[in-house]
Simulated scan of single mutants.
Amino acid sequence: MTDQVQTAEPLLEVVDLKKFFPIRRGYFKRVVGHVKAVDNLSFYIMEGETLGLVGESGCGKTTAGRSILRAINPTSGSVFFRDPHLGRVDVAQLDDEKLRVVRRSMRMIFQDPYASLNPRMTLLDIVGAPLRAMNIAHGSELEDRVAEMLRRVGLRPEYMRRYPHAFSGGQRQRIGLARALAPNPKFVVCDEPVSALDVSVQAQILNLLQDLQEDLGLTYLFVAHDLSVVAHISDRVAVMYVGKMVEMAETRELYTNPMHPYTEALMSAIPLPDPRPRQKRVLLTGEVASPANPPSGCYFHPRCSYAVDLCRTREPELEEVKPGHFVKCHRARELSLTGVSEILARQ
């Protein structure tokens, strides 16, 4: 985790971001509804910090990351980014020419190191692709830049003539890191970059990400479902449920003092190495709400043991209950929930 932020203005600010996918049926493919993958998502990330974005599979984490980078176009909302070339811009509203400029500073590391690399391209082609596409380097200069990036991620420069099949999963993820960082970005979306790797390799990649962040001044949005990993690398953590933000706080505060019942349930599922008895596991009943047909009121109320009538009829607002601690729950101020301080003790 990085030191405290140096500037007062966020590097990235997401405001009311939405991404809806249309549901089409019938012969004429008429739109009969929408899958609300990301719904009114708002948060900020300061320069040099790491924000962890967590939640169950299908909650909209990856869609949010791709919408921020305009890998897919958001339905509505704003993504304000402090670009070194253009200044503060709304990425969601940029034309193609300015978007190409901004993409030098906003990059993505993908989840699957096997599917994200073209097997017919050498490392020189893979890592050098963004440098060519953005007209940053060509010829011998490009080879020098690729060699330097390979060294930074722990690979030997002479590997640049080899193909991805010659490398292990951990090495392939290092290649993905080199490709993402080749244009010298300021902001990187890490889309579950270690979930497909062995545990020992996960630690190596996480440590590499932290070293690169310190050396290159990077800012991360770290998307993951493993809360142990998120605790290790994040300065703050945001929790998503069915496309909506339900809680966000500084890492230690969130893990030791969760204020949303969904966050408490996630914390209770973290495996701990201590064989001694621990707090009772919070088991959620029922199914995850459908983003195509969410329930009324709070989306989490059908699975929440603390729900009252108000939760079933009115959706709560995301409020700052304590300084820097945002919660979307009607009962946040009255509930006393259990965290997992043991995880932080091992960091």
Rank of each mutant, 00 (worst) to 15 (best):
V54C: 10
E342P: 03
E250L: 08
T75K: 04
R151Y: 03
L209D: 14
M46S: 14
H34L: 00
L177Y: 02
Q171W: 08
E315V: 01
V91G: 10
L318H: 06
L181N: 12
R24C: 00
L117A: 06
V32C: 01
I45F: 05
L155H: 05
S78V: 02
D215K: 15
V5H: 14
K328W: 00
R172C: 03
R66Y: 11
S168Y: 10
R252P: 02
V327A: 13
I136K: 04
Q171D: 07
I136H: 05
K29A: 10
L221G: 09
E9C: 01
H330Q: 06
T2R: 13
V146C: 09
A71P: 01
N135S: 09
T256I: 04
H138K: 15
V91M: 13
E315S: 08
C298W: 04
R252W: 02
A292G: 13
L181T: 10
D235I: 02
T62I: 07
A178H: 08
G217A: 11
L86A: 06
R100K: 14
H34W: 11
S168I: 08
T219I: 10
L155I: 03
T63P: 09
P164A: 13
C304G: 03
L335T: 11
E319S: 09
Q202H: 09
E49W: 02
E143Y: 04
V35R: 01
L131W: 05
E315H: 01
T285N: 07
R278A: 07
A345G: 02
L131Y: 05
Q210E: 14
N207M: 09
L41W: 00
I45Y: 04
G65L: 10
A182P: 05
D39Y: 00
V288A: 13
V229R: 11
V89C: 09
E214G: 07
D215S: 15
V229E: 13
N257S: 15
R281S: 05
Y306F: 15
G297D: 02
I175E: 02
V102K: 04
E334V: 13
L218T: 10
D226I: 06
P10I: 04
R151N: 10
F43W: 04
A224H: 12
T7D: 14
S57K: 08
E264M: 01
L124W: 05
A292Y: 00
L12R: 07
K280P: 01
F28T: 09
P261R: 04
E148L: 12
R156S: 14
F21G: 07
R24L: 00
R107Y: 03
P74Q: 08
A182C: 07
G48K: 11
R82P: 03
P302I: 00
D274E: 09
K19S: 02
H225M: 12
V194P: 13
V201R: 07
F222N: 12
